[in-house]
């Protein structure tokens, strides 16, 4: 009896243990797009107009860095920086250079983060937007350097810094150099903070590992998109370590909010308004005038 019950239970478990990670691949270039969450089929054109949020179930599709720029910043306000930095292959990993090259061609980015200046309803900001379509958004030397330079530009120009995180963590092929990018971005953030400047971290799906355990978690304000996977260790690693079943919503934005780890979970439709308001509330004189 118990065994029979186990069989049914296991089926249920494996379904629950699945977190959609292939959604990037599941978004075809075609006319219609199927929601990986509710299976609703939507016109791709309509989905794009809806900031890539499923109109039926509110599933937030992954965005490319440029899609994020377009959905967030004032039209034409974005100016990118440090597009000229190029990754090396410091440990000589076979195939690494080619993989970076291929992802660069696929995404039109030099690395897994796009950085620059832009405006939110006229308020100037410095942004960094990670793109999980580029090597899972993993952080190597160039990602660390671009984010650091963006933070420094914000410090120099006395501007708020907003980052959209999407990353599997540190990039293994660059070894300990990747790990040290966590420290590098942190020393830059400390300087920015000491100037009394605002740092908002927006955690999007997925934000894990070394990125979660560095800049992503130390915003003056940390907000996340609904259902985003956020955590330090991977679900499978934890299940193997603690040998217990994890709740279905484990490591989701809502789970983190309930455990006091986030300031808010914000729907993509109101992301721009929310961020603009936060920036305005941290701008001298802007509140009484606005």
């Amino acid at each position: 009896m118990a065994m029979i019950r186990d069989i049914f239970k296991r089926n249920k478990d494996s379904k629950e243990a699945t977190i959609p990670t292939k959604s990037a691949k599941d978004v075809p270039e075609g006319l219609m797009t199927k929601c990986p969450s509710c299976k609703e089929i939507t016109l791709t054109k309509d989905l794009d107009k809806n900031n890539k949020v499923c109109p039926k179930c509110d599933h937030h599709f992954k965005m490319t860095a440029y899609e994020r720029v377009n959905s967030l910043l004032d039209a034409g306000s974005f100016e990118s920086m440090d597009d000229h930095l190029k990754s090396e292959n410091p440990l000589g990993f076979p195939g690494y250079t080619e993989k970076v090259q291929a992802d660069s061609e696929k995404t039109g980015l030099n690395e897994a983060v796009l950085t620059g200046t832009g405006q939110l309803f006229g308020h100037p900001i410095v942004v960094a937007i990670m793109d999980s379509h580029f090597r899972m958004g993993s952080m190597g030397s160039v990602v660390g350097e671009k984010i650091t330079r963006a933070i420094e530009a914000a410090t120099e120009r006395k501007l708020p810094f907003i980052i959209f995180t999407a990353s599997g963590g540190a990039r293994m092929q660059e070894g300990v150099l990747s790990l040290m990018q966590m420290a590098k971005t942190s020393v830059a953030l400390k300087r920015h903070s000491n100037e009394g400047l605002l740092f908002v971290s927006v955690l999007t799906h997925p934000t894990t590992g070394g990125v979660s355990a560095s800049f992503a978690s130390v915003g003056d304000i940390n907000i996340a998109e609904p259902k985003a996977l956020i955590g330090f260790a991977g679900r499978r690693v934890i299940e193997q370590t603690v040998r217990e079943k994890l709740p279905e919503d484990f490591q989701t934005a809502e789970f983190l909010l309930a455990h006091g780890q986030l300031d808010a979970v914000v729907h993509r439709a109101s992301m721009k308004d929310t961020l603009a308001t936060i920036v305005r509330l941290h701008t001298k004189g802007a509140v009484t005038n606005g």
Partner: peptide, 26 residues
């Protein structure tokens, strides 16, 4: 490494590490 456990995640393993990095800088 830092412990990959359920309670560690619930209490903010990421934030605890990240906070140390930033605060040690200063």
């Amino acid at each position: 490494g830092a412990y990959p456990g359920k309670a560690a995640e619930e209490r903010g393993q990421s934030e605890a590490i990240a906070r140390n990095l930033v605060e040690m800088a200063g």
